[in-house]
Design a protein around this nucleic acid. Structure first.
Lengths: 207, 207
DNA sequence: GACCGATATATCGAGCCGATATGTCGGACC
DNA sequence: GGTCCGACATATCGGCTCGATATATCGGTC
C-alpha cells in the first residue's frame, strides 16, 4: 500500500527519502503518518523490483517554497526560523542523499496497484490513497473504483444494521452510541461517493 | 491494542480462542476484523504475562443463542442451517479446546491499557475500542478519555485547515474533495464527542 | 463408509510502526 | 575558533498484525 503512495509522489517529481516522507505525511494528510521504518524498506523493495532507480543528484527542479511549519513549541519556532533562513539560500547539494526517480516498470506497477482491490483490513486508508491519485486513471476505471467502494460501504452498512437489530439490548450506551455514529459516518460516505459518481458520469466541473 | 480487546471480552465470560474471535469480530464490528494470526500469539503473550490462564472446560455458562449469520451464499445458508440445528442440542464439550479466563493481573492490565494513550497510528481504532469498554472506568476517567480524544481531533482539524489554506491550488479536485470530506467527518466526530461529554457531565440518561 | 464443512489451534512470511543508531552539515553561542 | 545543538538523511531492530496455510477433530450428508 505504501508502494502506491511512493510511486504516486515520485511520478510528479524525483525526490530523496527524507523529502519523500515529508510529502507523504502532509499530502496524505493528518491520517496515516509514514515512518522511516516503512519508507526505506519500501524504497529498497521498489528499487530491487526495478520500479524506481537512484539518480545522480544533478540539477534539480527548484526547491519547493517551504510552507510555514506547525511546531507548537518555542524551540520549534526558532528552528523553523532558521530553516526559513536556510531555505532562502541557493539549494545545497548535500552529497549524502539518494534521489529516486520512477521508471517505466514503476509506472506500470503504479497503474496496477491503483486498480487492484486492496487488503480488507486497511481498506479505508487504501481507498483514500487511491482517490488521491485517481486523476491518473482513465474515466471508466475511476468510475469503477468509486462504484466498487460504494458497494463495499453498502454491504458494511447492511451488516451493521443487522447487528444493530439483533443485539440492541445487549449493548451498553457507549457502544450503542459508537455504532450509531459509525453507521451515520458510513451513510455520509455513501452519499459522498454518490456525488463523486454523479460528477464522474456527467464528466462536468461541478463537484 | 488487541490485548485490551481480549481482556475486555474475557472480563465478561471465559471463552476459548475460536469463540473469542467470533465475539471480537462482531462486537468490535464491521471495522477491524481480528485474525487468528494475531489472536493466538496475543493469547500466548497474555498467558505468559499471567494476565489470563487456561481453565478446565468445566460446566460453562449456557451457550449464547446463535444469531442468524450473514453468509451470502447458498452453501453458507445450508451451513448456517446445520449450525442452528447443532446449537439446538445440549453443549458439546469438544475436548480439544483451551478455555481462557482473566486473572487479577489481567484486570489490572485491562485498566492500565484502557487509560494509556495509544499509538498515534491506529489512534482511531484504539479509541473506538476504549469506548466500547469505557463503562468499566470511573466517571472522571471516562470524561478524561473523551476530552483527550476531543483535543486530539481539534488539533487534527486545525492542521487540516492550515494545509487546506496553504495548498488549495495545488490539489486536484479529487484530493480536495477527499480532504473536505475528511474535515467534515472530523467536525462531526467532535460534536459527537461533545454530546458524549455533556452526557457524562450531567451524569444523566439522555445520550 | 467416504467425504465435506464447521470447529479449533497454531505457525509462517511479510508489511508496517515506533524507537533507535549513525552520520553530515550549518549556525549559534561564548 | 571551537564546541555544541538541531535539522537533514539513511538505515536497522524488535514487535505487532495480517492473510495464508497446515493440521486435526467432529457431526452430518450422501
Amino acid at each position: 500500500m505504501l508502494e502506491l503512495a511512493i510511486l504516486g509522489v515520485l511520478k510528479e517529481q524525483e525526490l530523496h527519502g527524507y523529502e519523500l516522507k515529508k510529502r507523504l505525511t502532509d499530502a496524505l494528510g493528518a491520517f496515516s503518518s509514514v515512518s522511516f521504518g516503512s519508507l526505506y524498506p519500501a524504497l529498497a523493495r521498489l528499487e530491487a523490483a526495478g520500479a524506481v532507480r537512484a539518480v545522480s543528484p544533478g540539477p534539480q527542479a527548484p526547491l519547493p517554497a517551504p510552507a510555514v511549519p506547525m511546531t507548537g513549541s518555542i524551540a520549534g519556532e526558532a528552528a523553523a526560523f532558521r530553516a526559513r533562513r536556510a531555505a532562502a539560500r541557493p539549494a545545497r547539494p548535500s552529497r549524502t542523499r539518494k534521489v529516486y526517480a520512477i521508471t517505466e516498470r514503476g509506472e506500470a506497477l503504479f497503474e496496477e496497484l491503483l486498480v487492484a482491490d486492496s487488503a480488507s483490513a486497511d481498506d479505508d486508508r487504501a481507498f483514500n490513497l487511491k482517490l488521491a491519485f485517481c486523476r491518473y486513471l482513465p474515466p471508466e476505471r475511476r468510475l469503477g473504483l468509486f462504484e466498487q467502494r460504494r458497494a463495499l460501504l453498502v454491504e458494511r452498512l447492511a451488516k451493521a444494521r443487522t447487528t444493530h437489530r439483533t443485539r440492541l439490548g445487549r449493548m451498553d450506551l457507549y457502544t450503542q452510541s459508537l455504532v450509531d455514529h459509525g453507521t451515520e459516518a458510513t451513510e455520509r460516505d455513501i452519499s459522498w461517493l454518490d456525488r463523486l459518481i454523479a460528477f464522474e458520469r456527467q464528466g462536468g466541473e461541478t463537484l
